[in-house]
């Protein structure tokens, strides 16, 4: 998979790596049991300090997403998918929260915000989500607007 690192962002580089790996697992780009590239190879690929890459791997290991396979390297755990998905939902929740907070602090009313949200949802419901594996029930997408 390919990473895109923003060196100047607020988020630490290793955290960006961690997040992107988790998102990739959640989206199904990386499957459980798949071997990750070695620290050296990955640091060469993304042009980053190997310590940073190692730190990212350590973090992933601590989070239970990957584990060492003796003689081979790091593999994705089977349970990782669930973890990653939950993590992704948390992150998306935070993001939605921060957008709503920004709108609120900019002076928009609750009604305005809700109108915008419903408009966007209405457009999106008709399209097919890009994800490979969906964890939602079909009924979650329908339902009257509040």
């Amino acid at each position: 998979m390919f990473f895109s690192i923003d060196v100047q962002s607020d988020v630490a580089i290793y955290l960006q790596l961690v997040r992107q790996v988790k998102f990739a697992i959640a989206a199904g780009t990386i499957r459980p049991g798949q071997l990750l590239p070695s620290v050296r190879a990955l640091s060469n690929q993304v042009a980053l300090n190997p310590n940073t890459v190692a730190r990212a791997f350590n973090q992933l290991q601590a989070d239970g997403v990957i584990e060492t396979l003796r003689g081979r390297g790091m593999v994705v755990r089977d349970a990782a998918v669930e973890i990653c998905r939950r993590e992704r939902e948390t992150v998306l929740n935070e993001r939605i929260g921060s957008v709503l907070a920004e709108a609120w602090h900019a002076g928009l009313s609750k009604k305005q915000i809700k109108t915008y949200v419903d408009d966007h949802l209405r457009q999106l419901v008709d399209t097919e989500p890009a994800v490979l594996v969906s964890s939602t029930e079909p009924s979650d997408n329908g339902g009257a607007e509040e």
Partner: peptide
């Protein structure tokens, strides 16, 4: 530089290419 660091060697870099330093420096 990354290769050297990955194999345990030391790199002393004097530079003012900030973007490179951010990627590669410990």
């Amino acid at each position: 530089m990354i290769d050297r660091a990955a194999t345990g060697r030391t790199v002393f870099l004097s530079s003012h290419q900030i973007s490179e330093v951010e990627r590669v420096a410990d």
